[in-house]
Design a protein around this nucleic acid. Structure first.
Lengths: 123, 123
DNA sequence: AAGGTGTGTTTACAACTGTAATCGAATCGC
DNA sequence: GCGATTCGATTACAGTTGTAAACACACCTT
């Protein structure tokens, strides 16, 4: 998967992933527009671009489209995560943890969750 | 720091950070060109753009420049890391760890290093 | 003195991004 | 039926990115 999704496009993907069911362009815009302050036109552009990239697919429903993600969030997120640790940390996660820890990017809850995960991994 | 450094630009920054002392454009190109296969012209473009962004500074040495990073690698990397976990994981690191773990993005050595870090943190 | 060589600077140009406006066709409300 | 609304599609347009080539000027070599 060599699929790159831009920041703005990701916003739209999150709306689709979050909905859990296909959305029209207008519905997607409703789920975003508020804070982001986007016009409907912008959301439509994003959907077209995402469709061109193969990140979303659409089914016709009368004269409009119902859009849904063509890739799973986990897959995309996993891909980007690997790319990221590769790019900045030589593929190792520990230096990232170290860096965030050093800047107080971690609270106790997060730390506990990570420890639990690792414990799980070793069993 | 709202500084964005592109993939190609980062390559040049890594050369400067890696050198540990100021470099001329030609020297920077030497430290990169090989695998990346860039022309000297490309490296010069990157250095100009990085200078314009304030990511590198240059001192004159006769009729050429000696370039050095204007920001520390740790600062940049920390900034980007926060941005990344914010963007995809709501600011929590644990889901990133979970995702990578699930795709075998972690080897034993890395896991041990993380555990050691966390243990350190709690003391 | 003249021609090559190395510098930074300017210009190039297509692809991708962010952010829409416009357009032509279909449909809905009345 | 006909104007208003709503779609997707097309076009816009400036900024960033990747990847350089061209240019003007200084210096070095012969």
């Amino acid at each position: 998967m060599d699929l790159r999704i831009s920041d703005a496009e990701l916003e739209v993907m999150e709306a689709l992933w979050g909905a859990g069911h296909p959305l029209t362009a207008a519905e997607a815009a409703d789920r975003i527009g508020a804070e982001r302050g986007w016009s409907l036109a912008t959301v439509k552009t994003m959907l077209s671009r995402l469709a061109a990239k193969g990140a979303v697919k659409h089914r016709e429903d009368g004269r409009r489209f119902l859009y849904s993600p063509a890739i799973k969030r986990e897959a995309y997120v996993g891909h980007e995560s690997r790319r990221f640790v590769e790019r900045l940390f030589g593929g190792r996660l520990s230096p990232l943890v170290a860096r965030l820890a050093e800047e107080d990017g971690l609270d106790d809850e997060d730390i506990a969750a990570i420890e639990a995960l690792l414990k799980e991994l070793k069993s």
